[in-house]
Design a protein around this nucleic acid. Sequence first.
DNA 1: CCGGATCCGGTTAGATACTG
DNA 2: CAGTATCTAACCGGATCCGG
Lengths: 232, 232
Amino acid sequence: MTNASYKQFCPVAMAAELLCTRWTVILLRELVAGSSRFNELRRGVPRMSPALLSKRLSELETAGVVRRERLSEAPGIDAYRLTEAGHDLQPVIEAIGTWGQKWVETEPSLENLDPELLMWDMRRNLDTDPVPDRRVVIEFTYPELPEAQRRWWLIVEPDRTVDLCHIDPGFDVDLYARVDLRTMTEIWMGLRSVADAVDREALLLVGSTSLTRTMQTWLGLSPFARQAKLAR
Amino acid sequence: MTNASYKQFCPVAMAAELLCTRWTVILLRELVAGSSRFNELRRGVPRMSPALLSKRLSELETAGVVRRERLSEAPGIDAYRLTEAGHDLQPVIEAIGTWGQKWVETEPSLENLDPELLMWDMRRNLDTDPVPDRRVVIEFTYPELPEAQRRWWLIVEPDRTVDLCHIDPGFDVDLYARVDLRTMTEIWMGLRSVADAVDREALLLVGSTSLTRTMQTWLGLSPFARQAKLAR
DNA sequence: CCGGATCCGGTTAGATACTG
DNA sequence: CAGTATCTAACCGGATCCGG
Protein backbone atom coordinates (compact mmCIF):
# COMPACT_ATOMS: atom_id res chain seq x y z
CA MET A 1 0.00 0.00 0.00
CA THR A 2 2.54 2.55 1.11
CA ASN A 3 5.08 3.54 -1.52
CA ALA A 4 8.79 3.22 -1.13
CA SER A 5 10.11 6.46 0.25
CA TYR A 6 12.81 8.67 -1.19
CA LYS A 7 13.93 9.26 2.40
CA GLN A 8 14.51 12.94 1.85
CA PHE A 9 13.05 15.74 3.94
CA CYS A 10 12.73 18.04 0.93
CA PRO A 11 9.10 19.02 0.18
CA VAL A 12 9.61 18.19 -3.49
CA ALA A 13 10.53 14.63 -2.56
CA MET A 14 7.71 14.37 -0.04
CA ALA A 15 5.15 15.42 -2.66
CA ALA A 16 6.74 13.32 -5.40
CA GLU A 17 6.32 10.17 -3.33
CA LEU A 18 2.59 10.61 -3.68
CA LEU A 19 2.31 12.28 -7.09
CA CYS A 20 4.99 10.70 -9.22
CA THR A 21 3.72 7.18 -9.46
CA ARG A 22 2.26 5.80 -12.63
CA TRP A 23 -1.18 7.19 -13.60
CA THR A 24 -1.52 9.35 -10.50
CA VAL A 25 -1.38 12.79 -12.11
CA ILE A 26 -3.60 11.64 -14.98
CA LEU A 27 -6.13 10.51 -12.41
CA LEU A 28 -5.80 13.81 -10.55
CA ARG A 29 -6.42 15.68 -13.80
CA GLU A 30 -9.74 13.83 -14.09
CA LEU A 31 -10.63 14.64 -10.49
CA VAL A 32 -9.68 18.29 -10.93
CA ALA A 33 -11.82 18.37 -14.08
CA GLY A 34 -14.76 17.26 -11.98
CA SER A 35 -15.21 13.52 -12.44
CA SER A 36 -16.15 11.74 -9.24
CA ARG A 37 -17.63 8.29 -9.86
CA PHE A 38 -15.45 5.20 -10.28
CA ASN A 39 -16.60 4.45 -13.81
CA GLU A 40 -16.62 8.11 -14.75
CA LEU A 41 -12.95 8.16 -13.81
CA ARG A 42 -12.37 4.97 -15.79
CA ARG A 43 -13.79 6.69 -18.84
CA GLY A 44 -11.21 9.46 -18.57
CA VAL A 45 -8.36 7.01 -17.91
CA PRO A 46 -9.46 4.10 -20.06
CA ARG A 47 -6.11 2.33 -20.19
CA MET A 48 -5.64 2.25 -16.43
CA SER A 49 -6.62 -1.08 -14.93
CA PRO A 50 -9.49 -0.93 -12.42
CA ALA A 51 -7.29 -2.60 -9.85
CA LEU A 52 -4.70 0.15 -10.09
CA LEU A 53 -7.40 2.84 -10.15
CA SER A 54 -8.82 1.46 -6.95
CA LYS A 55 -5.37 1.33 -5.38
CA ARG A 56 -4.52 4.90 -6.38
CA LEU A 57 -7.82 6.20 -5.03
CA SER A 58 -7.08 4.53 -1.70
CA GLU A 59 -3.62 6.07 -1.61
CA LEU A 60 -5.00 9.51 -2.38
CA GLU A 61 -7.61 9.06 0.33
CA THR A 62 -4.93 8.07 2.85
CA ALA A 63 -2.89 11.11 1.83
CA GLY A 64 -5.86 13.38 2.46
CA VAL A 65 -6.24 14.43 -1.16
CA VAL A 66 -9.47 12.59 -1.90
CA ARG A 67 -12.54 12.06 0.26
CA ARG A 68 -14.77 9.08 -0.38
CA GLU A 69 -18.49 9.69 -0.04
CA ARG A 70 -21.03 6.92 0.35
CA LEU A 71 -23.90 7.82 -1.96
CA SER A 72 -26.21 5.14 -0.58
CA GLU A 73 -26.46 2.57 2.17
CA ALA A 74 -25.44 -0.24 -0.13
CA PRO A 75 -21.68 -0.42 -0.64
CA GLY A 76 -20.38 0.08 -4.13
CA ILE A 77 -21.96 3.43 -4.95
CA ASP A 78 -19.27 5.86 -3.91
CA ALA A 79 -18.16 9.28 -5.07
CA TYR A 80 -14.56 10.44 -4.91
CA ARG A 81 -14.11 14.15 -4.39
CA LEU A 82 -11.06 16.32 -3.85
CA THR A 83 -10.43 17.70 -0.40
CA GLU A 84 -9.02 21.19 0.08
CA ALA A 85 -5.53 19.74 -0.25
CA GLY A 86 -6.70 18.04 -3.43
CA HIS A 87 -8.08 21.21 -4.98
CA ASP A 88 -4.77 22.82 -4.14
CA LEU A 89 -3.12 20.41 -6.59
CA GLN A 90 -4.71 22.22 -9.50
CA PRO A 91 -1.72 24.58 -9.95
CA VAL A 92 0.58 21.55 -10.05
CA ILE A 93 -1.48 19.82 -12.73
CA GLU A 94 -1.70 23.08 -14.69
CA ALA A 95 2.05 23.64 -14.49
CA ILE A 96 2.69 20.12 -15.78
CA GLY A 97 0.18 20.48 -18.61
CA THR A 98 1.43 23.91 -19.65
CA TRP A 99 4.98 22.61 -19.84
CA GLY A 100 3.83 19.56 -21.80
CA GLN A 101 1.93 21.66 -24.32
CA LYS A 102 4.90 23.96 -24.75
CA TRP A 103 7.77 21.47 -24.92
CA VAL A 104 6.70 17.90 -25.63
CA GLU A 105 6.72 16.86 -29.24
CA THR A 106 3.14 15.96 -30.13
CA GLU A 107 3.85 13.61 -33.01
CA PRO A 108 4.14 10.42 -30.97
CA SER A 109 0.94 11.02 -29.04
CA LEU A 110 -0.96 11.90 -32.22
CA GLU A 111 -0.45 8.28 -33.19
CA ASN A 112 -2.45 7.13 -30.18
CA LEU A 113 -5.76 8.82 -30.75
CA ASP A 114 -8.95 7.86 -29.01
CA PRO A 115 -12.30 9.18 -30.24
CA GLU A 116 -14.12 8.47 -26.99
CA LEU A 117 -11.51 10.33 -24.94
CA LEU A 118 -11.68 13.25 -27.36
CA MET A 119 -15.49 13.42 -27.42
CA TRP A 120 -15.58 13.08 -23.63
CA ASP A 121 -13.23 16.05 -23.30
CA MET A 122 -15.20 18.05 -25.87
CA ARG A 123 -18.40 17.37 -23.99
CA ARG A 124 -16.82 18.62 -20.79
CA ASN A 125 -15.49 21.86 -22.20
CA LEU A 126 -18.19 22.81 -24.68
CA ASP A 127 -19.24 26.43 -24.22
CA THR A 128 -23.04 26.63 -24.42
CA ASP A 129 -23.19 30.45 -24.41
CA PRO A 130 -23.04 30.90 -28.21
CA VAL A 131 -25.44 27.96 -28.78
CA PRO A 132 -29.16 28.68 -29.52
CA ASP A 133 -31.42 28.51 -26.49
CA ARG A 134 -33.15 25.21 -27.32
CA ARG A 135 -32.07 21.61 -27.78
CA VAL A 136 -29.16 21.52 -30.23
CA VAL A 137 -27.69 18.32 -31.73
CA ILE A 138 -24.32 18.07 -33.42
CA GLU A 139 -23.25 14.87 -35.15
CA PHE A 140 -19.59 14.00 -35.60
CA THR A 141 -18.52 11.40 -38.16
CA TYR A 142 -14.99 10.00 -38.31
CA PRO A 143 -15.12 8.21 -41.69
CA GLU A 144 -11.90 6.26 -41.25
CA LEU A 145 -12.95 4.57 -38.00
CA PRO A 146 -14.78 1.26 -37.62
CA GLU A 147 -18.54 1.41 -37.31
CA ALA A 148 -18.59 1.21 -33.50
CA GLN A 149 -16.51 4.40 -33.11
CA ARG A 150 -17.55 6.30 -36.20
CA ARG A 151 -20.50 8.44 -35.17
CA TRP A 152 -20.97 10.56 -32.05
CA TRP A 153 -23.61 13.06 -30.99
CA LEU A 154 -23.14 16.05 -28.74
CA ILE A 155 -26.50 17.24 -27.40
CA VAL A 156 -26.99 20.59 -25.73
CA GLU A 157 -30.19 20.30 -23.71
CA PRO A 158 -32.56 23.23 -23.12
CA ASP A 159 -31.21 23.43 -19.55
CA ARG A 160 -27.69 23.87 -21.00
CA THR A 161 -26.34 20.50 -19.87
CA VAL A 162 -24.35 18.68 -22.53
CA ASP A 163 -24.70 14.95 -23.27
CA LEU A 164 -22.54 12.66 -25.34
CA CYS A 165 -24.05 9.69 -27.21
CA HIS A 166 -22.44 7.10 -29.40
CA ILE A 167 -25.75 5.64 -30.48
CA ASP A 168 -28.18 7.71 -32.55
CA PRO A 169 -30.47 9.56 -30.11
CA GLY A 170 -33.00 10.09 -32.92
CA PHE A 171 -33.23 13.88 -32.61
CA ASP A 172 -33.05 16.22 -35.59
CA VAL A 173 -29.43 17.15 -36.20
CA ASP A 174 -28.53 20.86 -36.38
CA LEU A 175 -24.98 20.43 -37.62
CA TYR A 176 -23.10 17.54 -39.23
CA ALA A 177 -19.30 17.50 -38.89
CA ARG A 178 -17.31 15.10 -41.03
CA VAL A 179 -13.64 15.04 -40.08
CA ASP A 180 -10.74 12.67 -39.56
CA LEU A 181 -9.85 11.97 -35.96
CA ARG A 182 -6.36 13.39 -36.20
CA THR A 183 -7.58 16.73 -37.52
CA MET A 184 -10.26 17.01 -34.86
CA THR A 185 -7.72 16.17 -32.15
CA GLU A 186 -5.32 18.81 -33.49
CA ILE A 187 -8.11 21.40 -33.38
CA TRP A 188 -8.94 20.39 -29.82
CA MET A 189 -5.30 20.75 -28.80
CA GLY A 190 -5.06 24.20 -30.35
CA LEU A 191 -2.56 23.09 -32.99
CA ARG A 192 -4.77 24.28 -35.86
CA SER A 193 -7.97 26.26 -36.24
CA VAL A 194 -11.46 25.27 -37.40
CA ALA A 195 -11.14 27.72 -40.31
CA ASP A 196 -7.86 26.19 -41.45
CA ALA A 197 -9.28 22.66 -41.34
CA VAL A 198 -12.35 23.75 -43.34
CA ASP A 199 -10.19 25.57 -45.90
CA ARG A 200 -8.06 22.49 -46.46
CA GLU A 201 -11.18 20.32 -46.65
CA ALA A 202 -10.13 18.21 -43.67
CA LEU A 203 -13.32 19.28 -41.88
CA LEU A 204 -16.69 19.34 -43.64
CA LEU A 205 -19.55 21.16 -41.91
CA VAL A 206 -23.15 20.80 -43.11
CA GLY A 207 -26.22 22.36 -41.45
CA SER A 208 -26.81 25.45 -39.36
CA THR A 209 -24.76 28.31 -40.78
CA SER A 210 -24.67 30.11 -37.45
CA LEU A 211 -23.33 27.02 -35.67
CA THR A 212 -20.82 26.60 -38.48
CA ARG A 213 -19.67 30.17 -38.17
CA THR A 214 -19.31 30.09 -34.39
CA MET A 215 -17.81 26.62 -34.07
CA GLN A 216 -14.39 27.88 -32.97
CA THR A 217 -16.21 29.64 -30.14
CA TRP A 218 -18.60 27.02 -28.80
CA LEU A 219 -16.10 24.22 -29.28
CA GLY A 220 -14.31 24.57 -25.98
CA LEU A 221 -10.72 23.55 -26.55
CA SER A 222 -8.24 21.84 -24.28
CA PRO A 223 -7.43 24.00 -21.25
CA PHE A 224 -3.86 24.17 -22.57
CA ALA A 225 -4.71 25.09 -26.17
CA ARG A 226 -3.67 28.72 -25.68
CA GLN A 227 -0.09 27.84 -24.73
CA ALA A 228 2.09 28.14 -27.84
CA LYS A 229 4.13 25.11 -28.75
CA LEU A 230 7.89 25.63 -28.84
CA ALA A 231 9.28 22.07 -28.99
CA ARG A 232 11.65 21.54 -31.92
CA MET B 1 14.88 3.08 -22.70
CA THR B 2 11.59 4.48 -23.82
CA ASN B 3 8.90 4.47 -21.17
CA ALA B 4 5.52 2.90 -21.56
CA SER B 5 3.15 5.50 -22.87
CA TYR B 6 -0.17 6.54 -21.37
CA LYS B 7 -1.45 6.79 -24.96
CA GLN B 8 -3.31 10.00 -24.31
CA PHE B 9 -2.97 13.18 -26.31
CA CYS B 10 -3.47 15.36 -23.23
CA PRO B 11 -0.42 17.55 -22.45
CA VAL B 12 -0.59 16.50 -18.80
CA ALA B 13 -0.17 12.88 -19.84
CA MET B 14 2.54 13.73 -22.35
CA ALA B 15 4.57 15.55 -19.71
CA ALA B 16 3.87 12.96 -17.03
CA GLU B 17 5.39 10.22 -19.19
CA LEU B 18 8.70 11.98 -18.79
CA LEU B 19 8.39 13.54 -15.35
CA CYS B 20 6.44 11.07 -13.27
CA THR B 21 8.87 8.21 -13.13
CA ARG B 22 10.76 7.38 -9.99
CA TRP B 23 13.49 9.87 -8.94
CA THR B 24 13.02 12.08 -11.99
CA VAL B 25 11.67 15.20 -10.29
CA ILE B 26 14.17 14.86 -7.44
CA LEU B 27 16.93 14.79 -10.03
CA LEU B 28 15.42 17.80 -11.79
CA ARG B 29 15.32 19.67 -8.49
CA GLU B 30 19.09 19.13 -8.23
CA LEU B 31 19.62 20.32 -11.79
CA VAL B 32 17.41 23.36 -11.24
CA ALA B 33 19.39 24.12 -8.09
CA GLY B 34 22.52 24.23 -10.20
CA SER B 35 24.30 20.87 -9.85
CA SER B 36 25.80 19.65 -13.09
CA ARG B 37 28.46 16.98 -12.57
CA PHE B 38 27.53 13.31 -12.21
CA ASN B 39 28.91 12.91 -8.70
CA GLU B 40 27.59 16.30 -7.68
CA LEU B 41 24.14 15.04 -8.65
CA ARG B 42 24.74 11.78 -6.75
CA ARG B 43 25.45 13.80 -3.65
CA GLY B 44 22.03 15.45 -3.85
CA VAL B 45 20.28 12.16 -4.62
CA PRO B 46 22.36 9.76 -2.53
CA ARG B 47 19.86 6.92 -2.46
CA MET B 48 19.45 6.75 -6.23
CA SER B 49 21.58 4.07 -7.79
CA PRO B 50 24.18 5.33 -10.28
CA ALA B 51 22.71 3.06 -12.93
CA LEU B 52 19.31 4.68 -12.62
CA LEU B 53 20.85 8.16 -12.47
CA SER B 54 22.67 7.48 -15.70
CA LYS B 55 19.49 6.15 -17.31
CA ARG B 56 17.42 9.15 -16.22
CA LEU B 57 20.02 11.59 -17.50
CA SER B 58 19.92 9.87 -20.89
CA GLU B 59 16.13 10.04 -20.96
CA LEU B 60 16.18 13.73 -20.08
CA GLU B 61 18.77 14.33 -22.78
CA THR B 62 16.61 12.50 -25.34
CA ALA B 63 13.62 14.56 -24.25
CA GLY B 64 15.56 17.78 -24.82
CA VAL B 65 15.55 18.78 -21.16
CA VAL B 66 19.23 18.23 -20.45
CA ARG B 67 22.28 18.91 -22.60
CA ARG B 68 25.44 16.92 -22.02
CA GLU B 69 28.68 18.85 -22.35
CA ARG B 70 32.06 17.21 -22.80
CA LEU B 71 34.40 19.00 -20.44
CA SER B 72 37.52 17.37 -21.87
CA GLU B 73 38.70 15.11 -24.67
CA ALA B 74 38.78 12.08 -22.44
CA PRO B 75 35.36 10.53 -22.03
CA GLY B 76 33.86 10.41 -18.58
CA ILE B 77 34.15 14.08 -17.66
CA ASP B 78 30.78 15.45 -18.65
CA ALA B 79 28.53 18.19 -17.35
CA TYR B 80 24.76 17.99 -17.49
CA ARG B 81 23.00 21.30 -17.89
CA LEU B 82 19.38 22.23 -18.38
CA THR B 83 18.27 23.39 -21.81
CA GLU B 84 15.69 26.16 -22.20
CA ALA B 85 12.96 23.51 -21.93
CA GLY B 86 14.68 22.26 -18.79
CA HIS B 87 14.83 25.68 -17.14
CA ASP B 88 11.15 26.00 -17.96
CA LEU B 89 10.50 23.09 -15.59
CA GLN B 90 11.36 25.27 -12.62
CA PRO B 91 7.72 26.38 -12.13
CA VAL B 92 6.66 22.72 -12.12
CA ILE B 93 9.23 21.78 -9.46
CA GLU B 94 8.26 24.83 -7.42
CA ALA B 95 4.56 24.02 -7.62
CA ILE B 96 5.24 20.47 -6.44
CA GLY B 97 7.46 21.64 -3.60
CA THR B 98 5.07 24.34 -2.47
CA TRP B 99 2.23 21.84 -2.34
CA GLY B 100 4.43 19.38 -0.44
CA GLN B 101 5.44 21.95 2.14
CA LYS B 102 1.83 23.00 2.62
CA TRP B 103 0.06 19.64 2.69
CA VAL B 104 2.35 16.67 3.30
CA GLU B 105 2.71 15.60 6.89
CA THR B 106 6.37 16.01 7.79
CA GLU B 107 6.56 13.48 10.58
CA PRO B 108 7.43 10.45 8.43
CA SER B 109 10.19 12.22 6.56
CA LEU B 110 11.65 13.62 9.78
CA GLU B 111 12.47 10.03 10.64
CA ASN B 112 14.74 9.75 7.62
CA LEU B 113 17.23 12.50 8.25
CA ASP B 114 20.55 12.81 6.50
CA PRO B 115 23.21 15.21 7.79
CA GLU B 116 25.16 15.30 4.54
CA LEU B 117 22.05 16.17 2.53
CA LEU B 118 21.16 18.89 5.03
CA MET B 119 24.66 20.39 5.14
CA TRP B 120 24.86 20.23 1.33
CA ASP B 121 21.59 22.17 1.08
CA MET B 122 22.73 24.66 3.73
CA ARG B 123 25.97 25.24 1.85
CA ARG B 124 24.02 25.93 -1.33
CA ASN B 125 21.60 28.43 0.18
CA LEU B 126 23.82 30.22 2.70
CA ASP B 127 23.51 33.98 2.36
CA THR B 128 26.97 35.52 2.58
CA ASP B 129 25.77 39.13 2.70
CA PRO B 130 25.47 39.39 6.50
CA VAL B 131 28.77 37.49 7.01
CA PRO B 132 31.98 39.47 7.80
CA ASP B 133 34.14 40.22 4.79
CA ARG B 134 36.93 37.72 5.53
CA ARG B 135 37.22 33.96 5.86
CA VAL B 136 34.52 32.75 8.29
CA VAL B 137 34.31 29.21 9.67
CA ILE B 138 31.26 27.69 11.34
CA GLU B 139 31.40 24.28 12.96
CA PHE B 140 28.29 22.14 13.37
CA THR B 141 28.22 19.25 15.82
CA TYR B 142 25.43 16.67 15.90
CA PRO B 143 26.22 14.95 19.22
CA GLU B 144 23.92 11.99 18.71
CA LEU B 145 25.47 10.90 15.41
CA PRO B 146 28.36 8.46 14.97
CA GLU B 147 31.82 9.96 14.69
CA ALA B 148 31.91 9.90 10.86
CA GLN B 149 28.84 12.15 10.55
CA ARG B 150 29.14 14.20 13.74
CA ARG B 151 31.12 17.29 12.77
CA TRP B 152 30.81 19.54 9.72
CA TRP B 153 32.38 22.84 8.75
CA LEU B 154 30.86 25.55 6.59
CA ILE B 155 33.55 27.89 5.32
CA VAL B 156 32.82 31.25 3.75
CA GLU B 157 35.92 32.19 1.76
CA PRO B 158 37.07 35.79 1.28
CA ASP B 159 35.74 35.61 -2.31
CA ARG B 160 32.29 34.70 -0.86
CA THR B 161 32.24 31.11 -2.11
CA VAL B 162 31.03 28.59 0.46
CA ASP B 163 32.69 25.23 1.09
CA LEU B 164 31.50 22.26 3.10
CA CYS B 165 33.98 19.96 4.86
CA HIS B 166 33.42 16.91 6.98
CA ILE B 167 37.04 16.70 8.05
CA ASP B 168 38.56 19.43 10.19
CA PRO B 169 40.03 22.06 7.83
CA GLY B 170 42.22 23.38 10.67
CA PHE B 171 41.10 27.00 10.49
CA ASP B 172 40.08 29.02 13.53
CA VAL B 173 36.37 28.58 14.14
CA ASP B 174 34.20 31.71 14.42
CA LEU B 175 31.04 29.99 15.61
CA TYR B 176 30.32 26.60 17.12
CA ALA B 177 26.80 25.21 16.74
CA ARG B 178 25.79 22.19 18.78
CA VAL B 179 22.39 20.86 17.81
CA ASP B 180 20.52 17.63 17.20
CA LEU B 181 19.93 16.75 13.57
CA ARG B 182 16.17 16.84 13.83
CA THR B 183 16.12 20.35 15.25
CA MET B 184 18.53 21.64 12.63
CA THR B 185 16.43 20.04 9.87
CA GLU B 186 13.26 21.59 11.28
CA ILE B 187 14.93 25.00 11.26
CA TRP B 188 16.06 24.48 7.67
CA MET B 189 12.53 23.55 6.64
CA GLY B 190 11.06 26.63 8.29
CA LEU B 191 9.15 24.61 10.88
CA ARG B 192 10.80 26.42 13.80
CA SER B 193 13.07 29.40 14.26
CA VAL B 194 16.67 29.70 15.42
CA ALA B 195 15.52 31.77 18.38
CA ASP B 196 13.01 29.14 19.45
CA ALA B 197 15.59 26.35 19.26
CA VAL B 198 18.07 28.43 21.31
CA ASP B 199 15.40 29.26 23.90
CA ARG B 200 14.53 25.61 24.34
CA GLU B 201 18.21 24.69 24.49
CA ALA B 202 18.00 22.44 21.47
CA LEU B 203 20.58 24.63 19.74
CA LEU B 204 23.71 25.85 21.53
CA LEU B 205 25.73 28.62 19.88
CA VAL B 206 29.22 29.54 21.09
CA GLY B 207 31.53 32.12 19.50
CA SER B 208 30.97 35.31 17.53
CA THR B 209 28.03 37.18 19.02
CA SER B 210 27.30 38.94 15.73
CA LEU B 211 27.15 35.63 13.85
CA THR B 212 24.96 34.26 16.63
CA ARG B 213 22.60 37.19 16.42
CA THR B 214 22.27 37.10 12.63
CA MET B 215 22.11 33.32 12.19
CA GLN B 216 18.47 33.31 11.10
CA THR B 217 19.53 35.70 8.33
CA TRP B 218 22.71 34.14 6.94
CA LEU B 219 21.39 30.62 7.31
CA GLY B 220 19.55 30.41 4.00
CA LEU B 221 16.57 28.18 4.52
CA SER B 222 14.85 25.75 2.19
CA PRO B 223 13.31 27.57 -0.80
CA PHE B 224 9.93 26.40 0.50
CA ALA B 225 10.39 27.45 4.12
CA ARG B 226 8.13 30.48 3.75
CA GLN B 227 5.09 28.42 2.75
CA ALA B 228 2.97 27.82 5.85
CA LYS B 229 2.15 24.23 6.65
CA LEU B 230 -1.53 23.37 6.73
CA ALA B 231 -1.58 19.56 6.76
CA ARG B 232 -3.64 18.13 9.63
C1' DC C 1 -24.14 -1.94 -15.09
C1' DC C 2 -21.20 -0.64 -10.76
C1' DG C 3 -17.13 -1.25 -7.88
C1' DG C 4 -13.95 -3.63 -7.26
C1' DA C 5 -10.58 -8.35 -6.10
C1' DT C 6 -7.46 -11.98 -7.82
C1' DC C 7 -3.96 -14.09 -10.47
C1' DC C 8 -0.01 -14.14 -13.54
C1' DG C 9 3.68 -12.57 -16.66
C1' DG C 10 6.63 -8.70 -17.98
C1' DT C 11 9.00 -4.37 -16.75
C1' DT C 12 11.13 -1.27 -13.54
C1' DA C 13 13.76 -0.19 -9.64
C1' DG C 14 17.13 -1.25 -5.62
C1' DA C 15 21.50 -3.29 -3.93
C1' DT C 16 25.90 -4.31 -4.61
C1' DA C 17 29.93 -5.04 -7.03
C1' DC C 18 33.02 -3.87 -10.60
C1' DT C 19 35.70 -1.32 -14.43
C1' DG C 20 38.26 2.26 -17.41
C1' DC D 1 35.65 10.39 -11.24
C1' DA D 2 32.09 8.57 -14.05
C1' DG D 3 29.71 5.43 -14.94
C1' DT D 4 28.33 -0.56 -16.10
C1' DA D 5 26.90 -5.09 -14.91
C1' DT D 6 24.26 -8.30 -12.52
C1' DC D 7 20.84 -10.12 -9.66
C1' DT D 8 16.62 -9.84 -7.01
C1' DA D 9 12.42 -7.60 -5.27
C1' DA D 10 8.66 -4.64 -6.14
C1' DC D 11 5.44 -2.74 -9.19
C1' DC D 12 2.46 -2.61 -13.16
C1' DG D 13 -0.66 -4.29 -17.21
C1' DG D 14 -4.09 -7.39 -18.79
C1' DA D 15 -7.34 -10.66 -18.24
C1' DT D 16 -10.62 -12.77 -15.60
C1' DC D 17 -13.93 -13.22 -12.02
C1' DC D 18 -17.24 -11.86 -8.31
C1' DG D 19 -21.02 -9.90 -5.32
C1' DG D 20 -24.66 -6.47 -5.35
